[in-house]
Amino acid sequence: MDEVLKLERLSIGYSLKSGNKMVAGNISETLKKGELVCLLGPNGAGKSTLIRTISGSQKPLDGQVFLDGKDIFQISSRKLAQKLSLVLTERVHGGMLSSYEVVGLGRYPYTRWSGKLEARDHEVIQWAIAKVGAEELTERMLSELSDGERQKIMVAKALAQEPEIMILDEITAFLDLPRRIEIMQLMRQLAKRENKCILMSTHDMELALKYSDKLWLMPKNGELSIGAPEDLVLKGTFAKTFESEGIHFDMQKGAFQSQEPYYHKVALSGSGHELLWTKKALERARIEIVQDAEIAVSVLNGDNGMFWEINVKGKKKGTHSIYEMLQMINEDD
């Protein structure tokens, strides 16, 4: 059976003295092997509470979480760590432990009291290190690594636990864009090639749309919507979730759009890559592209390379760069 984790009428939140504070209620859902699921939602919607509940470290208000058919809160912590592994946002210092030793700690639920690693443990560790592409980092101290390298090692540590499901809580929060894309691609590979079940909470809406098999959208009202990214886009749930945050989702372009007003209107002509990137530049500068306008921009690719010609009411100007082209349009006020 491919089903790994099953949530049944799960209500999450906190028990306070004044009563229960529910964050989200009545969640019924399953997580399967080979799937990358992204949990998306604005800050304060309760993503972390959901993650803590699903990973068995916080009791739900109601309902149950089943891991391989067993209630997750009935599984011993050692057995749980063999099936479910976590990677967290927090920066780990790790003292004077080398990366290899840190990945080795992933064998914690398998080793005996002394923590001695056997030959098979070393095989798993080396496999995990190779999977995340951290072969070069093994001898270095964890504390010397960059944020991105360190998170890779923590992913390798989670893999070394040989889990069925990996739960990742905003692990890309400190990373730059290339590193975030790299981690996303890695997660996808682990889901597809290693047949792991991966649940990952993130703030990267566009990356989540692009890479995940399934999205869990968690708006502030606690009504979780679940589906393929495209399903949620077409139903309008995606746009609605973030509308309240002041971000507009453009269904045409499949991306988030600025709601800043347009400053100018131009008519654009041209072809190829040059046209595409000129459009992007105009969009960024909040210049609307219309059929007919006082300013006409033509993208030409002549013998002297790329050239932009600007025609303002018959007066012609030209430039070889998009930067100057935009300046010319803006100067025209």
């Binding site: 912590s77 050692r78 760590a81 976590l86 210092h93 432990l97 992933g106």
Partner: peptide, 13 residues
């Protein structure tokens, strides 16, 4: 050394 949260997730009491 990995912090309390990671230690707990490794199955440590």
């Amino acid at each position: 050394l990995l912090g309390e949260n990671y230690a707990r997730a490794l199955g440590m009491s």
